[in-house]
C-alpha cells in the first residue's frame, strides 16, 4: 500500500493523500469543528465527557479550556487541509482531530467493544477503518 504520509529530512510531514482521502479528512475535521460549537450536534456530548465523574459538574474553566483546545486543533487542521507539507504541530492537530472524530463516531454508533465494531454497518465500518489507517500512518511519524 502506498504511503499516506511521509517524514521529510527537514522534519515536516508530507501529505500523500489523494483527493478522496483529503475529502474524508475534510469531512472529519469539519464535523469536529461544528460539533464543538453546536450543542445540538450529535457529537457534542461526546466531546464534552466528564473530567471528574465524582462531581455533578466539572470546573467551567476546564471545560472552556478543553473546548478551546479542541476547536483550535480542528481549525488548524481545516486551515492546512490542502497543504502538501505539515509542520509537526500541524500534523499533531490532524492526528488529534481525526482521533476525536473516530471516537465520536464510535460512541454515537454504540460501538463499545470489538463485537459491536464487527457487527457495524459496512459503510460505517469502512469509515472507521479509513480513519484508523490515517491515524496509524500519522502516529508512526510523530
Amino acid at each position: 500500500m502506498a504511503k499516506l504520509f511521509a517524514r521529510r529530512r527537514d522534519g515536516r510531514i508530507e501529505v500523500k493523500l489523494n483527493d478522496e482521502g483529503r475529502a474524508v479528512a475534510r469531512e472529519a475535521f469539519g464535523r469536529v469543528y461544528v460539533a464543538e460549537h453546536d450543542s445540538e450536534h450529535e457529537w457534542h456530548k461526546t466531546l464534552n465527557s466528564p473530567i471528574d465523574p465524582s462531581r455533578d459538574l466539572d470546573d467551567p474553566m476546564l471545560v472552556l479550556a478543553r473546548q478551546s483546545q479542541t476547536g483550535s486543533n480542528a481549525e488548524l487542521a481545516i486551515a492546512t487541509l490542502h497543504e502538501q507539507f505539515l509542520t509537526p504541530q500541524e500534523a499533531w492537530a490532524w492526528l488529534t482531530t481525526l482521533q476525536v472524530a473516530l471516537r465520536a463516531t464510535a460512541v454515537v454508533n454504540n460501538i463499545y467493544d470489538e463485537d459491536h465494531l464487527a457487527a457495524a454497518d459496512p459503510v460505517l465500518l469502512d469509515y472507521v477503518r479509513t480513519l484508523q489507517i490515517f491515524l496509524f500512518a500519522l502516529a508512526e511519524l510523530l
Binding site: 492526528l95 482521533q99 463516531t105 460501538i111 465494531l117 496509524f136 502516529a139 508512526e140
Partner: peptide
C-alpha cells in the same frame, strides 16, 4: 475503547 489504534 475498541477503535483507537494502539500506536496513537
Amino acid at each position: 475503547d475498541p477503535v483507537t489504534p494502539m500506536q496513537v
